[in-house]
Nucleic acid binder design. Structure first.
Lengths: 333, 333
DNA sequence: CCGGAGTTTTTCAACGATTGACATCACCTG
DNA sequence: CAGGTGATGTCAATCGTTGAAAAACTCCGG
């Protein structure tokens, strides 16, 4: 595919610039010329060279999505949604796995990838979001994940406190009194924000807060959920319900429950957060907080493109993703 | 980030050429100069402009991975592995979702992305692999998925027939006599190849082949597996074991089983294919064919880079991914 | 048939990094 | 001290595309 603009031009009998004009929808072109050029393009199967174009224009129509790990179902689903949303607008998404490494996250922030990308959608995990300032990056950036009042960037996320409150209240509403939380140590503020909602709910329900029931470190994987659940079950007085700060841990927790010969929701009710597809097919199916990922993707992309085009408002925007409480078997749905 | 090569040169007090030499590992450079230049690069936080470099060199160090959908756990895990393998070699992976659309797949094959990428790792689904010829693409290409004798490209895959044989024989070995197969209509040859292994095993075990036990269309998702399982359970003589052609369907099948008040492995033993993480944590945990994804990723990337560098052997290579039969609860492990 | 107002098309020079041919030096060696 | 070697610099060209500006063309009224 060595077809260049000049080849097309030669074929169509016009100048290189005219071909470029046709491609870029320059208004003043005769129908005749346009037709000729388009025919030549079709015949030669021409595709513009992205590198050259981006070098000249300073725009590449590539954006990066930086996530901790793409194999994690939530991020995989998110990535798919964002890719789709971007494609609709003629934008290509480049996915970056930071693998939870601070170094990799820093790389993302430093106008990484040698100016190829026009902007970044960033889901931080190690980098304390508050510490990210506009000085750190030259590229437009949209943050996903927990909100942070002092931030300088556009931001899209669920109201985690409220959602966690709802999840916990749901456990209360089905009669549970000893409700645990898994994932309180979670990265990038997730743990503390969701715990806030959890505690608020306990208080609202008049339940006592037992520190022994708040468990979980920074990992948010299945095995972390399983380990936390085992820890809880080993307590002198185990919980009768657990709110896991994400679905992946909830699935691990359910597994640990089964391994212990117990079952959900009878012995322990379990609710997660994220609504990943696995949860729907799990036995028992998993109750969860279901954020609208399509909405999130659409808006994150739109926000970023606005910023890139410079048409966005001057001050940063904070979008809140709609969510619903989805009740399934794991809480007796 | 408007730092250019010339800025670095000025800062280091050397010529642009020297900086370029340092970056590109030109042999004759004093340690002093190299140090100076490297210091300048670090201070200015310089990153070469990818567009300019790729325009000039004709190499971008980007490769594309084209998969049907990245939200599907198998592809997500594969994508993660390939990204990692590529990163080790200084290559960036661009993931493309074809969403099972023939048009999108065709786009991938037409030296898509305007010459930005150096090569493609392609996991086809609608495009009949035999139909892909080197005439269709100008870029080096490595195919994943079922093998096809007539192909013209390098290829990496599990020996699906053998693996399916093993999976089926495992069901036989635990005493099952009425063994069904789910996914026989699967895309890009997967269905027919795995069915071949399945049938071979039945024959080897002296079991009769019942066409009613071979079900499933082209979809390979959880809901397809669930639907197929329901279909099987509705038979006058339902199966006592099922081999699902991928784990996702197996999970759906397990769910359908549960919904019908039956359980695995007691009523119906279930085995899948792929060893996705979900399967390990499912209740019951899922027996499966576990292909070495890291191996697959490493080799697919290495093969492609060889091809790109032109150092590969002239004739196409066909690599077979090692796998193991992993027995878990769903078959009584 | 000319001048001017558009409209359409072309010419020219970047964008930033790399490379090749060659010119300089500064040393070192015999 | 001539000649060789190693290290760096100069200069110009190149990759394919596009913005700015200039040139060529069309059309119309006078």
């Amino acid at each position: 595919m060595a077809t260049r603009l000049s080849d097309v031009a030669a074929r169509a009998g016009v100048s290189v610039k005219t071909v470029s004009n046709v491609i870029n929808d320059y208004p003043h072109i005769t129908a005749r010329t346009r037709a000729k050029v388009e025919a030549a393009i079709a015949e030669l199967d021409y595709t513009p060279n992205v590198s050259a174009r981006s070098l000249r224009k300073g725009r590449s129509d590539f954006i990066a999505l930086a996530v901790p790990e793409m194999a994690s179902p939530y991020f995989a689903e998110l990535g798919a949604a964002i890719s789709r949303a971007a494609k609709k607008r003629g934008i290509t998404v480049l996915i970056d796995q930071t693998e939870g490494e601070a170094a990799a996250e820093k790389l993302v922030l430093d106008g990484m990838r040698g100016q190829l990308i026009d902007g970044i959608i960033f889901s931080p995990i190690t980098t304390a979001p508050a510490r990210i300032t506009s000085a750190d990056t030259a590229k437009p950036l949209v943050l996903l994940g927990e909100r942070h009042p002092g931030g300088t960037f556009d931001h899209v996320a669920v109201d985690s406190v409220q959602a966690s409150f709802d999840a916990t209240m749901h456990l209360v509403s089905i009669g549970r009194r000893r409700i645990a939380a898994i994932g309180v140590g979670g990265g990038a503020g997730t743990g503390s924000v969701r715990r806030k909602g959890y505690r608020k709910a306990l208080k609202a329900a008049g339940l006592e807060l037992d520190p022994a029931l708040e468990v979980g470190g920074s990992g948010y994987h299945r095995e972390d959920g399983a380990a936390s659940m085992r820890e809880l079950l080993a307590l002198p007085e185990p919980p009768d319900a657990v709110f896991c700060f994400n679905d992946l841990m909830a699935i691990g927790a359910l597994r640990a429950l089964t391994d212990a010969g117990l079952s959900a929701p009878e012995d322990v009710a379990v609710i997660g957060f994220d609504d990943i597809e696995d949860g729907r097919y799990h036995s028992p199916s998993l109750s969860t907080i279901s954020a609208d990922k399509e909405w999130l993707a659409e808006n994150a992309v739109a926000l970023l493109l606005d910023r890139i085009a410079g048409t966005g408002e001057a001050d940063r925007r904070d979008l809140t993703v709609p969510y619903t409480l989805t009740i399934r078997e794991s809480t007796g749905g």
